[in-house]
Amino acid sequence: MEIDFFWIGAGLALLGYFIGNGLKNFKNPKGSPSGTPLLIKERDLFVYLRLRPEEVRELLEKYPDAPKLLLKGTTYYPYEQLVQWLSSEDLYKKQ
């Protein structure tokens, strides 16, 4: 009888783990595992880059070849590619 309670408890613990793990990205199902979205709108870019909006605007004006997507008139930036582009040596050579 005690063994039955053990398996019920273990099953409930696993159930709680899998439900909790599934709820991590409930509001953002297409997000990346790191918690950042895959695509960021231009107006929200300053939040993820931790810059002031003026600095982001200046950066994008200075480097119009930043990785971006234009969908239905809205500009999106792929976060992982943008961070990789910002940290690339080619960007520093252009200055």
Results as ranks from 00 to 15, higher is better:
M1V: 05
E2Q: 12
W7Q: 12
W7H: 10
W7I: 15
W7G: 04
A10N: 06
G11P: 09
L12D: 07
L12M: 13
L14M: 04
L14H: 00
L15G: 10
Y17S: 13
Y17K: 08
Y17N: 08
F18P: 04
F18M: 07
I19W: 05
G20R: 13
L23D: 03
L23P: 05
K24A: 08
N25D: 08
N25L: 03
N25W: 01
F26W: 12
F26Q: 00
F26R: 05
K27H: 06
N28L: 09
N28I: 04
N28T: 13
K30L: 15
G31H: 02
G31C: 06
P33R: 02
P33W: 02
S34E: 13
S34D: 15
G35I: 03
G35N: 06
G35W: 06
T36W: 10
P37H: 00
P37Y: 00
L38Q: 11
L38R: 10
L38Y: 11
I40E: 00
K41C: 15
K41L: 14
K41M: 15
E42D: 13
E42H: 02
E42W: 02
L45P: 10
L45W: 06
F46N: 03
V47R: 09
V47Q: 09
Y48N: 03
L49E: 14
R50M: 12
R50Q: 15
L51Y: 05
R52T: 00
R52G: 03
E55T: 11
E55C: 10
E55P: 03
E55R: 07
E55K: 08
E55N: 12
E55Y: 08
R57D: 04
E58N: 10
L59N: 07
L59M: 09
L60V: 01
E61W: 03
E61F: 02
K62N: 12
Y63D: 00
Y63N: 00
Y63W: 01
P64F: 00
P64M: 01
P64L: 00
A66S: 09
P67F: 02
K68M: 09
K68S: 15
K68P: 12
L70G: 11
L71Q: 03
L71R: 02
K72S: 14
K72G: 11
K72P: 06
G73A: 13
G73T: 12
G73P: 14
T75K: 06
T75R: 01
Y77V: 01
Y77T: 02
E80H: 02
Q81G: 04
Q81Y: 11
Q84D: 13
Q84W: 04
L86V: 08
L86I: 04
L86Y: 00
S87Q: 11
S87R: 11
S87F: 12
S88Q: 12
S88N: 14
S88L: 09
D90A: 08
L91G: 01
L91C: 00
Y92A: 11
K93L: 14
K94W: 06
K94A: 12
K94P: 12
